[in-house]
Nucleic acid binder design. Structure first.
Lengths: 341, 341
DNA sequence: GAACGTACTGAATACGTATGTGGCCTGCTT
DNA sequence: AAGCAGGCCACATACGTATTCAGTACGTTC
């Protein structure tokens, strides 16, 4: 049986096709009686508006596209857990607003930027992805230039093109470090790239430095810092390197939970206890943080709120409202890895 | 600047619109010279085929929809980690095959079933969701009746409507339990609903019983079984209940990793060591399993393979090929929670 | 009773692409 | 020289909906 069209309904109802369209979209001025009749027939025929035809005519798709980039180096099956938790919030917010969500995991090398809005598959784009901002800056510039509607999750910087929403990584790093200082720790290591490739990490590192300053302490020495990307293995390696330098730290602030968990493994290897010898704080509050042993103190980003804001900001932009980026507060979640019950 | 259409290109190239369409779709008989010319102009105008118009005309959308249901009871922000890992594989496979992916997290109460294919937003559906099969059986029947194209991940049963792909939960449960028996454990608890609401859990329970039979042991007593759904809290509660019955087990086979991790917390509370006093095995091999302390022995489902099979089976179905469900093997991953290094 | 507003509906058309059909041209066969 | 095949292309049209415009019928007002 072929799919029912609005013409089929029109014929059965003894009206014209436009009347059917008006009756079902609710907006038109259609008498109550004919509307009831049309709706009944539509239900009976299991009629659904053809989205393609409708989108073509109305020139938008009621669909957003979520583009998740990854470092080309990361394991193919592995997705950053924090983004996954945001995914839930984004899909739910889209559903609430009546939008569909297209999803795509892109390597940054692919030229995703030419696709979704240009081909009218989506009305706007949500860009998600840690990482090497400079590497895709050119593509973002292109999006701005083309007038593509998009929002981005990431580190909020003053001179960025486009709309960016992110959490306050500086404040998060500051609170985490402040917490450790408050516990009497004075040799606090930082694990995570402290250069400009990962703006989030850089901000967290700056918060770490600021906390030292706040407390009137000397800036932490570079011997207490080691580069790591956000994998468990990388965190473990970084921790090992610091321990090899001798004179171990009494606390660790890791730029992500995965790094922190890797670091805890390295500490266990070295016979150091957590939090007895070394207190550990992570960042992100992924599921595994509360499941770790001991449960990991961490800085939580509000994934639900973040997803909502991304969607709602993008929708506002589609309505041609003036929108701007935002910074969400980070929240310290204290668990046993810093020795507090 | 308005978007370029195939007419614009046609005019600039001095040909008709159909020729542009044929040149760009590659299929038509267009001379090499004009094709090159058209392609150059298209690139210059940043032309992209309008998907809505194209889909309308061709009557399919090159898009699949992934519908993820959840128990209405589960926490809104929490998504089963195993499905998240499958998500990565599904999106990537879709991308490889040239399909887009729509995603939606549905409560089972919503009437998702009326939507995606009927409105031509997607050519087919992938249904993902643990859980109470009976509760949405009626909807699946309706999908079959309507001739909707879909595949489902779940427990493979003989009399099911539609195409189902799943992992061999019986074999997985059998191997896990066999592993524990091989370690000399004889009082092996099972955590997870052993009734029919969750067919996967039921299968794992059957594997657990079969392993006892294989080894010539008596069927395990019901005092060693406790119901749990797949959350950490529920696992912890279930383990506590069993411990309260006295005469603690020397091993635990949990129907999911989250349950197992909860159980380990309960064991730690009770002062029992893992694996010394009690060996623990989970199911799913979620990320947190390897991060747990001690790292959790578990039964891995091959998420990458599963995602590929779901997509490819669905695509074959769309090509009107005869397809059938399949069962993927499960693989035991031994870690320290069962005391083996 | 004429003029007019109101409430509803139908005819026509546009959205942008893909494809069936038929025509023109060139080059070749007999 | 007539016919024929094949390569290349244009014309016309279909896909299913949303919207503009114009019309009809009816009630209202003076």
């Amino acid at each position: 049986m072929a799919k029912a069209t609005s013409f089929d309904i029109a014929e059965l109802a003894g009206v014209s096709q436009p009347t059917v369209s008006r009756a079902l979209s609710g907006s038109g001025t259609v008498s109550e009686a004919t509307r009831k009749r049309i709706e009944a027939i539509a239900r009976q025929l299991n009629y659904k508006v053809d989205k393609n035809a409708s989108n073509l005519r109305r020139r938008h798709s009621e669909t957003l596209a979520l583009l998740l980039f990854e470092d080309p180096t990361s394991d193919e099956s592995m997705i950053n857990p924090f983004f996954l938790s945001m995914l839930g919030s984004i899909t739910r917010t889209c559903a609430k607003r009546g939008y569909d969500l297209l999803i795509s995991f892109q390597q940054m090398s692919a030229n995703w930027h030419v696709d979704y809005e240009d081909s009218r598959k989506a009305d706007g784009l949500i860009l998600l992805g840690y990482g090497d901002y400079e590497a895709y800056r050119a593509r973002i510039d292109q999006l701005v230039e083309q007038g593509t509607h998009f929002v981005r999750w990431g580190s909020v910087q003053p001179d960025q093109p486009g709309i960016t929403i992110g959490c306050d990584n500086v404040q998060g790093g500051r609170e985490a470090t402040c917490h450790l200082i408050g516990l009497g720790r004075r040799r606090i290591a930082f694990l995570g790239e402290a250069n400009s490739r990962y703006p989030e990490f850089l901000d967290r590192y700056r918060g770490y430095c600021l906390a030292h300053h706040d407390a009137g302490l000397a800036p932490p020495p570079l011997t207490l810092q080691a580069d790591a990307i956000t994998t468990e293995q990388s965190g473990q390696d970084a921790m090992r390197r610091i321990l090899l330098r001798g004179d171990p730290p009494d606390a660790v602030f890791a730029a992500s939970d995965l790094i922190a968990i890797g670091a805890m493994h390295a500490l266990a290897e070295a016979g150091l206890s957590v939090p007895g010898d070394v207190a550990v704080v992570g960042f992100d509050d992924i599921t595994a943080a509360s499941l770790a042993n001991p449960p990991l103190t961490t800085v939580a980003q509000d994934a639900r709120r973040a997803g909502e804001m991304l969607v709602d900001t993008l929708l506002a932009q589609l309505r041609d409202e003036t929108v701007e980026g935002a910074t969400l507060p980070a929240r310290l979640v204290v668990r046993r890895s810093t020795g507090v019950h």
